[in-house]
Design a binder for these strands. Structure first.
Lengths: 238, 238
DNA sequence: CGCTACTTTGATATTTTTCAATCTTGGTGG
DNA sequence: CCACCAAGATTGAAAAATATCAAAGTAGCG
């Protein structure tokens, strides 16, 4: 896949129907990207920026051009449940009854397009083809959420972590298929919030994967896959 | 909300933006419902009918008029992970690259509309307003999947079950707001698959909720809520 | 260079899973 | 109409895993 310039917003998703080439489509046309750029604002935000909070009035939808974002909910216990990690070409901030359902934080430095909901709605209703691509995208995110639910239905921490590494790898393959190292820009605490584990369990599961010689942590935010087959086997052994 | 006749297919979802009344919109117009009915086939299926299997070629999308459907995946371990329970006015069977990502089974006797994917796609691209309602619906299902992920990130079985009962209650409130009993048409095994617990744990959690006098099981498929406040408190104590 | 936030490691407690046996219930056929 | 059967559900005891609490170790950043 040719790299897509990020001067203007775009999306990727898999189609409903079979395509001859298995490339992910849903990429917007240059024309559609210009239209989005016209109604939206390009923002460059430092890491750890709070982009919006759960329950706040939702005026915008966001499309990521670069970087990683997490969406999460604060639970009554004080725990933060991470609902998703989002990457370049992903969409987030779809509100319910005019209010955001999650909070959103920049994990790394990010470049996002902030799209006003009202104008986006008008645009989508006028451009049926673009709307279809949004539909594909949201469907794609639904399937991602289902995959995560399957991950969470596992009981063993090393297995959950192995699946998580698989998800991250698949994500990053789109950007750089040759990479044999997986980047984990989020903290262990974020991972714990995503994996439904305690922070300590994530740490121990990491050590366990390393002990089994499946991966090697080059540093806290970078894992090299040592035994791809073994890691995949563990990830698939749900 | 007035009951909607099910002669023709429909959908419900919550809007992105704030509506004066908080009723769930996204309900199709009579005209749109007729268009769907025209391209689709109304099917009446007995309980336990297999509607499609994971990996099969996806020719149709389904809309439920009556009854309950489960979508699930068979895991390598033999466990069945239930990805969703679906009810009247829900949509399922959205494929990826022309193949179903889950299998679908009728839990009860169901009436569904089977919509040919190719024709539906054309229809959506022509009827921008209907497509927007599909977008709302899929977004709604995405949020449901996120809620479930939060449920799964809990560790305690009684808490998970309490949240599940809350979800079921919210679902059934749409149909019959006055009901103080929750119907659980699925088996304990299905619930276990949805909750990421063992069948035995679901059984024990049910007994525990009853012991705490939060609910009373009238029979295996029907629970009466005895202490609504206590049940909600437990469900919210994530 | 030292602080602070993040991470790892250790020991114990809690919870669920697992394996096994028993009990119910709904459907079927004599 | 009743008895039987099989699938589904419950209960019990032991084992396995993670959570929790506590303390020590790292690493990045000013």
């Amino acid at each position: 896949m040719a790299p897509v310039p990020h001067r203007v917003p775009t999306l990727t998703a898999l189609p409903f129907q079979k395509t001859s080439a298995e490339t992910s489509v849903g990429v917007l046309t240059p024309r559609q990207r210009e239209e989005l750029a016209r109604i939206g604002t390009r923002l460059r935000l430092p890491a750890r920026t709070l982009m919006y909070e759960e329950g706040a009035e939702a005026q915008w939808v966001f499309a990521i051009a670069e970087g990683v974002v997490k969406t999460y909910r604060e639970l009554a216990s004080g725990r933060r449940a991470v609902t998703a990690f989002l990457f370049a070409r992903d969409l987030f901030g779809l509100a319910e009854n005019g209010r955001y359902v999650n909070s959103a934080h920049a994990v790394t430095r990010v470049i996002v397009y902030r799209l006003p909901l009202a104008e986006l709605t008008v645009l989508l209703k006028h451009d049926s083809d673009m709307q279809f691509k949004f539909l594909l995208k949201v469907t794609h995110e639904l399937r991602e959420a289902q995959r995560r639910a399957i991950l969470l239905s596992r009981r063993d921490a090393p297995g959950r972590l192995a699946m998580f590494l698989g998800l991250m790898r698949a994500q990053q393959d789109r950007e750089d298929p040759a990479a044999c190292a997986i980047s984990l820009p989020m903290t262990r605490s974020d991972m714990a919030g995503f994996l439904g584990l305690s922070l300590e369990s994530v740490s121990r599961a990491s050590a366990e994967l390393e002990r089994r010689r499946l991966v090697k942590f080059e540093n806290r935010h970078r894992v090299r896959v040592v035994d791809q087959a073994g890691l995949s086997r563990l990830a698939a052994a749900v």
